[in-house]
């Protein structure tokens, strides 16, 4: 899976104070107001990102988990609102229930707590490829306006790259065969690029109809969560569109961290601020995992 540590520098965003919701008429704004009232400590942009990503996972879903940011979010979801989330790791662990954050996709705690441990050919051929898994949760070194993912090389020459990244891992087939894909990535002009240097895993290709033309059965990236906000593909153009701003983040900040002309949803919402409960659970998880 992609390793966030190999990604070029990301913006160091200072701890962001909670900002009251700006749209009191919407459900999310109401939730934000309530959350803000419940939140008594400052949080970082990274924490907001992991919490927003965790909230996207619902109980009973099966989730193919990439290591790094996706694993943090998926394990946080299991510890908060989705205790029956089914975590699937490419090492062959189906239904892993780790009590601490695993450092790799094959830590012992994953095998010891799994409903079943199967071989690597089996996890890809029997479980992933037929479309049995609801959500594939991926990271990225680069992501483009159509949600295509690069974890292979930075630079235009594959044979002589500026930066050699770890490579594909399980991601191309996760992006092909899961019913939906969520991506979590720290956002900057280095990571949010007009077009990826290398398509490791296909998002929406170059636009509408591309996934169908390529014969990709899953819906592709339906949600991208960053440290600044949340993006969804436009139903018509398939271009990633900003649909939520995290608390304390201004629209100009997101534009400045996007390598293309950013599309913004007409009904742009505010992400509800983290609750104390979410922050406590996240900090317990990351502390235990380090």
């Amino acid at each position: 899976m992609s390793q966030s540590a190999s990604v070029p520098a990301t913006p160091a965003t200072p701890a962001t104070p909670a900002t009251p919701a700006t749209r009191p008429d919407s459900a999310s704004a109401a939730a934000a107001a309530e959350s803000t009232a419940n939140s008594t400590v400052a949080w970082t942009a990274d924490e907001m990102m992991s919490i927003a990503a965790a909230r996207a996972l619902r109980g009973g879903m099966s989730c193919f988990v990439g290591i790094g940011l996706p694993s943090t979010a998926a394990n946080l979801a299991r510890r908060t609102h989705a205790p029956d989330l089914v975590l699937i790791y490419e090492s062959g662990c189906l239904g892993a229930k780790p009590d601490r954050l695993p450092l790799s996709i094959g830590d012992g705690v994953l095998a010891e707590t799994a409903d079943a441990v199967v071989s690597v050919p089996e996890v890809f051929n029997y479980w992933l490829q037929p479309g049995r898994i609801d959500v594939g949760f991926l990271g990225a070194a680069q992501l483009d306006r159509f949600g295509n993912i690069n974890t292979t090389v930075i630079g235009s020459d594959y044979a002589d790259p500026a930066v050699r990244l770890p490579g594909a891992g399980g991601a191309p087939e996760i992006a092909t065969s899961c019913r939906e894909v969520f991506v979590v990535v720290r956002q900057s002009r280095r990571t949010f690029v007009e077009q990826v240097d290398f398509v490791t895993s296909v998002g929406h290709g170059r636009g509408p109809g591309d996934r169908a033309r390529l014969g990709l059965p899953g819906a592709g990236p339906v949600l991208v969560i960053t440290d600044l906000g949340v993006f969804r593909p436009d139903p018509d153009t398939r271009e990633l569109t900003l649909t939520e701003l995290h608390p304390g983040v201004e629209l100009d900040q997101v534009r400045a961290a996007t390598g293309w002309e950013l599309a913004v949803a007409a009904d742009l919402a505010r992400t509800p601020a983290p609750t104390d409960q979410e922050l406590i659970a996240l900090r317990a998880l990351t502390k235990a995992g380090s």
């Binding site: 051929n125 594909a168 191309p172 087939e173 490791t200 296909v202 996934r211 390529l214 990709l216 059965p217």
Partner: peptide, 9 residues
């Protein structure tokens, strides 16, 4: 397998 399609690999 059903893989690699649309990628640069």
């Amino acid at each position: 397998l059903r893989g690699y399609r649309g990628t640069d690999l």
